[in-house]
Design a protein around this nucleic acid. Structure first.
Length: 567
RNA sequence: CGGGGCGUAGCGCAGUUUGGUAGCGCGCAGCGUUCGGGACGCUGAGGUCGGAGGUUCAAAUCCUCUCGCCCCGACCA
């Protein structure tokens, strides 16, 4: 490809709205262009890189036994109502009506469609297991698209679905995909961390995310430096300190004038926050719920949402709390009725806690569970924090930020049951198919690859996903010898199947070198009167500082060799 | 959805406080001189000032409404 003909120009300045490096570089390099919030066009260079990623993914899916197919983006909303996942996705689902006012949606994922497809095409255990996938556009009306290609509303996703006869089969499919994913990231130049995750709107039990560690990633990962434990904060568990051996004392009231927060109360009564109970109020699908947790801990709303099995969860407003007859600031689970109480396991981590008395300016001392009140549900609803104990080995937990570049789920049978995707076993007995699903966002992977592979000059593409392999960079094109050599080399490279971007512009060396660095093509080949004096050209890796002079003779072979070694 | 910010030429911005015929830099086109790390000179093209309504002799500027974009939070594969 000749740069003079390439669609997409590099820019000197970047739009103010881009504030993460992959977004800035993609725009500066003229590779993407925004159309609306979270909606982008890919220009030729970025599109080539994306197709490289796509082919790597396709290769790994095929190798793992996947079969590629294609399902529609446009789907009847009815299909989603059957599984109830229209509610789980909520406003994230793009919906529309056709000319006859039939409700449709744009697929945010394809479990419904594929399960329907499998229902008609796999009825016997002989048809299973199946690994079916597509690489296709998804639509999700994200509450807040952000960070360029990292969180968008329209994106290309590889989604594979596994169908097995039993749990054991699912585990095997899951393991195959896990390995395939690791191969993909490795080939894309991305070190990833496998973390335990919440399955969110997709549903199911077990799930893992692949995270690229990145300062500006939007996910927080809790991990243990001592063992392999790593989990998304949505999911992370921890061991909190316990106070043992304290004898329960009788309940007593204390005056706490004007003390409404845990900080106030703990300071006023001179007890650590870990010896208090915090009351937190949420509205779950319209119903007020009362959360109780140890005062030094925070509620993990994802865990809470899962335990309540609700679609929508939000903090209650003060008005809603007061309306329920609760005294804000001195709220208490003691003597409460008509409202669901969810308590975190931490409330049994000691004895003689401080809690509200549900009377203004009054608290209780020596509150003990279950002596003084009952919780409807006892569960882990705490947000794991740095410094707490690792649930696996007891070591101290750390945290880091990451970008989620893949998510795999063990779905089990809840969708196949709802949609009637059954198979007949060897004994003629019918069972629901055991499902898994496995997703990678291609654009996000591309952005994450740039986040990981760049310097202050521009992108440094890992060779397997680089739009081109060689940047042919002649200087002083008005020099006939340079021009002729460059043209000849370009023709030869093309003929030999090298992927070459030819900077055939009559620009100054500075401009060309800067653009070469910005575009990030792995190998730069420079030709100038200076190199031609020695019948040579210069080869420089984008990732390295130094270049080397190489004889013109046999350059093509040499480049092919270099590319073979890396790819 | 709550909080904050911003919409003026392809890009980056000034001009808005105090109303008076829309500017700068980059980029783009042409010519010339340069050029191993974003050169310079001259000439030129390019703008419904996000949109609608209002106030006024006069609106990018003041008022009202509205649309869009970005950031933080809520939320979310």
């Amino acid at each position: 490809m000749r740069i003079s003909k390439l669609f997409g120009k590099t820019q000197r300045e970047i739009p103010a709205e881009a504030d993460i490096v992959s977004h800035q570089l993609l725009i500066k390099a003229g590779m993407i262009s925004q159309v609306a919030a979270g909606v982008y066009s890919y220009l030729p260079l970025a599109w080539r890189a994306l197709r490289k990623i796509e082919n790597i993914i396709r290769g790994e899916m095929d190798k793992a036994g996947g079969q590629e197919l294609s399902m529609p983006v446009l789907q009847p909303l009815e299909l989603w109502q059957e599984t109830g996942r229209d509610l789980a996705f909520g406003k994230g689902l793009f919906t529309l009506s056709d000319r006859r006012e039939r409700k449709l949606c744009l697929g945010p994922t394809h479990e419904e469609v594929i399960t329907g497809l499998v229902r008609y095409n796999a009825q016997s255990y002989r048809d299973l297991p199946l690994l079916l996938y597509q690489i296709q556009t998804k639509f999700r009306d994200e509450p807040r698209p952000r960070a360029g290609l990292i969180r968008v509303r329209e994106f290309t996703m590889k989604d594979l679905y596994s169908f097995d006869t039993d749990e054991e089969g699912l585990n095997q499919s899951y393991a195959k995909m896990l390995q395939a994913y690791q191969n993909i990231y490795k080939r894309c130049g991305l070190p990833t961390l496998l973390v335990e995750a919440d399955s969110g709107a997709i549903g199911g039990k077990d799930s893992h995310e692949f995270m690229v560690i990145a300062e500006n990633g939007e996910d927080e990962i809790i991990y243990c430096p001592g063992c392999q434990y790593a989990a998304n904060t949505d999911k992370a568990e921890s061991i909190i300190s316990k106070i043992e051996g304290e004898e329960p004392l009788p309940l007593e009231e204390v005056d706490t004038p004007g003390m409404a927060t845990i900080e106030d109360v703990s300071r006023f009564l001179k007890v650590p926050q870990s010896k208090t109970f915090k009351a937190v109020f949420y509205v779950a699908d319209g119903k007020l719920v009362f959360g109780v947790i140890r005062g030094d801990l925070g509620v993990n709303e994802v865990k809470l949402k899962n335990i309540l099995q609700c679609y929508e969860l939000r903090l209650a407003t003060e008005a809603e709390v007061i309306e329920a007859g609760i005294v804000a600031g001195s709220a208490s689970p003691i003597g409460i009725s008509g409202i669901k109480v969810i308590a975190d396991n931490s409330i049994t981590s000691g004895a003689n806690f401080i809690a509200g008395a549900n009377k203004p300016d009054t608290h209780f001392r020596n509150v003990n569970y279950p002596r003084d009140f009952k919780a409807d549900i006892m569960a882990d609803i705490a947000r794991a924090k740095v410094g707490e104990g690792c649930p696996k080995c007891g070591g101290k937990l750390s945290s880091t930020q990451g970008i989620e570049v893949g998510h795999i789920f063990k779905l089990g049978t809840f969708l196949s049951e709802k949609l009637g995707a059954l198979f007949i076993d060897a004994n003629g007995v019918s069972h629901p198919i055991v499902m898994g699903c496995y997703g990678i966002g291609l654009g996000r992977l591309l952005a994450a690859a740039i986040e990981q592979n760049h310097d202050d000059k521009g992108i440094i593409w890992p060779l397997p996903i680089a739009p081109y392999h060689v940047y042919l960079c002649p200087l002083y094109l008005e020099n006939p010898q340079v021009a002729t050599t460059a043209e000849n080399l370009y023709a030869e490279f093309e003929a030999q199947g090298l992927e070459v971007l030819f900077d055939d512009r009559k620009e100054s060396p500075g401009v060309k070198f800067n653009d070469a660095d910005l575009l990030g093509i792995p190998i730069r080949v420079t030709i100038s009167p200076r190199t031609l004096e020695k019948s040579s050209i210069e080869i420089k890796w984008r990732s390295e500082k130094e270049s080397q002079l190489v004889p013109l003779e046999g350059v093509t072979e040499r480049l092919k060799e270099l590319i073979r070694c890396v790819a």
